[in-house]
Amino acid sequence: MSGRNPDPIRLVGLTLGYDRHPAVHHLDGAVRAGDLLALVGPNGAGKSTLLKGMAGEIRCLDGRIERAGAIAYMPQVDEIDRSFPLTVMDLAGMGLWRQAGAWRSLVRRRPAVEAALAAVGLEGFAARPIGTLSGGQFRRALFARLILQDCPVVLLDEPFTGIDARTVEDLLTLIRTWHDEGRTIVAALHDLAQVRAHFPSTLLLAREPVAWGPTARVLTAENLARARNLSEAWDEGAAICTGPREHPAVAHDHGAAAHHHHEDAA
């Protein structure tokens, strides 16, 4: 398996954080090609930080992230100015940047944008200003942009926060389609039932990786209790970490049964 598809994202002795305080501490592992991975953990566990790191938004404090190929990233809190006079069509059309760049015409690509809007249930919304969309509709429009980006790897940071059940269902179907197309998806989520139902593998994070593997084996009562207990305190006087600066490359075992490391890391 690993011979054909190199891992799209590999984390090597990764420490991410702010002001030298780690939010993700000494994380090793790889996101396999075609994986549908849920990122679970309490608030402050470092889920968003890890996704930002994978997307290349922040620099590593230690270790490194190896990326192969283009990555589409949907942040938890976007910086989108919704009062800007832009249509839904134009917002979704931004996803075509890699094909169209700054100058090539989008006129011929209009059907593709319309198809993407239809795929997220926004037919007939193309000419609407983005400021008039509801929260759920806006989220759908952002998913349309992700469709048009057409990236092999998609990172989603709490994509369903504040969204009604029907929209969540539609978007999960879309994610399932992406998974069937062989794309790699990593999503930070809080709804454990949702994770159990839709995500074959899970990384349970509490600054330290608690467990990483098949969802059923990660989301055990014991693991979840351990994640809750791991301190999320910001200690101003924290000592300088003396742990290994960079973990030696972990031997990869991509067997079907145990395809992940940190099954029981601490």
């Binding site: 938004e57 100015d81 800007f84 832009l86 931004m94 700054a102």
Partner: peptide, 23 residues
Amino acid sequence: AVIYRPLVMECVDPLFLRSVSRS
């Protein structure tokens, strides 16, 4: 005319522009 599209994107969603382009 030359910078119109990235300029609009920079106004609306700077984070997204940064993720797809260095412009």
